Simulated assay, not measured.
Amino acid sequence: MEKLICALWAPEGETRAAYGAYLVEHLPGALAAAGGLGIRLNIRDARVEPATALVQQWQAPQQDAIVQFWLPSANARFRGAIDAVLAAHSGRFAAWLVAESTIIANSAYPPEAGRACAGWSQASFISFRPDMDRAEAIAHWHGHHTRVAIETQANFEYVQNIIVRPLTPDAPAYDAFVEECFSDAAMTDPHAFFDAVGNEAKFAQNLSAMMESCAGFIDFSRIDVIPTSQFDFAGRD
């Protein structure tokens, strides 16, 4: 099995809210009929508007939604039906083959198929620093940063996806996609985000450690960080 990450842009003239609602209702079923498994949809709806200040943007316009799913093979020869579904449900789309690593599984708030999951999901498309080779960047990410992200944040789900290769010719040149889930409070309260409610010293320490670690491998001029509502449809497989 191979995992795909697909960024979706709304058709011209369609609002992000209307597009997200449309995707939740129609896209998972269409992808499943075309062979997609373990489908997860991340949309930018009114629930996550309080987290707008956390958006970081490279792409213009920025992605309106993200869909993640698995196929027996991501080979273009066998992907025609999937690509047709994505094209029919977007103004345009970009897709990548990824290798998934679940660092923290969501055992605290088990998702219900087709319903918005608890809290919110920070979906991050990441590019590595251009002055580092890929192996060096991955070594820092996996060998150092993973521990820092676990210890300094109040994330109840943490999934790393390293990009193996792009599957569409116009896919932005990211190196990884990361999804982390937080409580609603973390949308507007940095102390809740950094697991330091009521503790200013811990907040300062955690924030500093996280920023220093991120700077050790991320190119901040080429990332897109998007607050989303997460919908998990894997239970329908």
Rank of each mutant, 00 (worst) to 15 (best):
M211V: 13
P166Y: 12
A34G: 04
V164M: 08
H89P: 10
S107D: 13
V85I: 12
V85K: 06
I226N: 05
L27K: 09
M210Q: 13
A81Y: 12
L27D: 09
T146V: 10
T52D: 15
A171C: 10
M132E: 07
D232G: 03
A209V: 03
F177E: 01
H145K: 07
H140I: 12
D184F: 00
P61R: 11
Q153N: 07
A21C: 15
G80V: 05
S73E: 12
G29R: 03
E2T: 06
D189W: 00
I163A: 01
G29F: 02
Q56T: 13
E2W: 02
K3V: 02
F128R: 02
I39W: 10
N155D: 09
S73Q: 09
A154F: 00
E100N: 10
N42T: 11
A95V: 06
T152V: 10
T102P: 07
G35F: 07
N42Y: 12
I104N: 04
P50A: 04
T152D: 05
G20Q: 08
A84K: 15
E151R: 06
I138C: 03
L71K: 08
L23S: 11
R40H: 15
T168G: 09
A30R: 06
V55L: 12
H26K: 15
T15L: 12
P72W: 14
A87D: 14
A46W: 14
F182R: 00
R77F: 14
P11N: 13
L41S: 03
S90M: 13
H191T: 00
D131C: 06
I43V: 12
N199L: 02
E2L: 05
I5F: 07
P130A: 05
P172T: 06
D64T: 13
E212V: 05
A87M: 08
L97W: 03
E25A: 15
P169C: 07
P166L: 10
N206R: 02
P111T: 03
A192T: 00
E157M: 13
D237S: 12
N106I: 02
R165A: 04
I82N: 01
A81H: 11
A74L: 01
S101K: 14
R129N: 05
P172R: 10
A113F: 09
E14P: 05
A76D: 07
I5P: 00
R77M: 11
R77H: 15
R92I: 06
D195F: 02
V164S: 09
I103V: 11
M211F: 12
D195H: 08
D232K: 03
E2K: 10
A185M: 00
E112Q: 14
T102W: 04
F193I: 00
R92W: 13
W96T: 04
D189H: 00
S183G: 01
E112V: 12
K3A: 07
H140S: 11
R92A: 11
A209N: 11
G235P: 03
E100P: 09
F233R: 01
A105F: 04
E2G: 02
L31P: 02
A149E: 06
D133I: 07
A113L: 09
R222G: 01
S107H: 11
E200R: 08
A84D: 13
A118D: 10
Y109A: 07
A118S: 13
R40C: 03
V67H: 06
P166M: 08
L4Q: 04
G143R: 04
S124M: 15
T52Y: 15
V85W: 05
F217H: 04
P11M: 14
